[in-house]
Amino acid sequence: MTDASLPARFERPSALAFLGYAAAIVIILWSFTGAGFSIDKVVSSPPRFADFLDRAFPPNLEPQVLARLGWKMLETLQIALAGAVIGITLSVPVALLAARGLIAPTWINQIVRTALGFIRAVPDIAWALVFVVAVGLGPFAGMLAIAIDTIGFCGRFFADDMEAADKGSSESLTATGARKLDVVACATIPAAMPAFISTSLFATEKAVRSSTILGLVGAGGIGIELKVGFDLFDYPTAMTVILMIAVVVISIEYLSGWARTKIIGVVR
């Protein structure tokens, strides 16, 4: 038996740590106030929510409504897929410029990473508004919004994936006298490929989710049907739209998970 005494279960925080915890609590409470948090409203909302459900159910399953919404959902998926494919494809060269220590000097890495940060900071719905102004109402604006949003997401993660990729193969090819671009194409990108695939599937899921609401600002897809349903108090049709979105998004998530397992053999 050792003569060392048992350490305390909990360490006493330093004065600085104590101040940090206190400040965090104050900021959280302040945020609740700014967000208009109200217990009264929480307590009074269930009857109103029940009233909405009462008016929304049963959902509108008339054949002509289902056909119209089905075509809009198809358009939504087309917007998502086209935007995601363009975004993922363009993300590869962008990520090559953003990744440190690959082909571009540090100052270019910084500029590209800052630009990617800006793209991510602007929400997809805001990009949709910008593209509606630029190219007019319709699905093309939505597709461009999805593409730029995907570049912000994949560009950053592809760059991080390449920086974190195993350096062994790269060093072996560098040692044969291969050029930087050849080393990246033959060793770095293949080493990062499982992460690329995983990130691309997440980006596609994200694109499908985003594309369902772009219609709210006139950028095509099923979102416009949701807005019209609520604006006209046609809650059964709005509920049909919500359920269709849920079914499609959940199906895409399952499909994506299955593809991820099949292609790279890992569930993330």
Partner: peptide, 22 residues
Amino acid sequence: GLRAMRAQIGLVSQKHNLVPRL
């Protein structure tokens, strides 16, 4: 110049360092 020099060297590493997916 370094690339030209390295082109005359062959390297075999401890971990083999093949590109696994190829």
